[in-house]
Amino acid sequence: MTGGPLDPGHLIDLGIGGPRRIRRRLPPGEAVRSTLIALVSTAVVFGLLAIAVTSSPNWADVQDKFFNGAIFSRSLPKIVEAFGTNVAMFLIAEVLTLILGLVLAILRGLPGPVFFPLRLIATVYVDFFRAVPGLLIVALLGFGIPGLGIEGVPGDPFLWGLVALTLVYAAYVSEVYRAGIESVHWSQEAAARSLGLNRLQALRYVIVPQAVRRVIPPLLNDFIGLQKDTVLVSTLGVVEIFRESQILKQAAFNFTPYLDVALVFVVITIPLARLTDWLVARDRARHASNR
């Protein structure tokens, strides 16, 4: 890329340049002109919005309660520290989700009457965990299981929160995998089987590797959801980012700590979202060049 970060071609690369079109090299004069237009129209839109909001009657009050600079910077270190708990949780949950989701997807695709019970279990599982609100699963496991008081079963709310999120997101991820597996043309399986590979080998070496490549963008999408949903475990009393912000809010009688939380999530999610867009664009370009 020769253009600066605001070069329109660059914006398209990042997935924020609007609907993707055939990328063409603009002549230098035209590139400068469209960059200027983009800048001016952005400034106008946001400027008008800012004026509308700040000229509202209670703006001074709201500004102090939600956008308090001093509280914002005072809270940030604590918020970031508490976020470590969320990061640990979503990293572990993501790995477990990838494994459990794949197992579920494969179980659902097993052929023949012998495997009907396994297919049934997997289908019911996926339907159930996609239907029930995640918050409910978190609460049921987080309060319910330790509440049973069974000897040897740990009562750690972090653990049960982690399990709940993994169970819920594995259901989503298995659907993504399943779509990916089904998108691999049946002739690939025929080719693998005709060489003497059994069904599992065909899945492992031929179907799943192709499927996974195709579903990386939707998988990342689900991960964005999973990362945000780690705040649900605050209901179990785990001191993670949202719980911490509530504590700070109480102490300061001010909502600004929520803004810190929002900022942290934006900062970690945007790179992931752009990575997803980039992967989609790359995939599309590759397909276009192949056929």
Binding site: S187, Q188, A190, A191, A192, S194, L195, G196, Y205, Q210
Partner: peptide, 28 residues
């Protein structure tokens, strides 16, 4: 699976495995 080892088939659409090198296709 034992039987298919003894019978090779080649399709109109080649059906090579696109995610593997030529060598991996042949040696898998």
């Amino acid at each position: 699976d034992r039987i298919r080892r003894r019978i090779g088939i080649v399709f109109q659409a080649f059906n090579l495995f696109p995610h593997m090198s030529v060598l991996a296709n042949v040696s898998l």
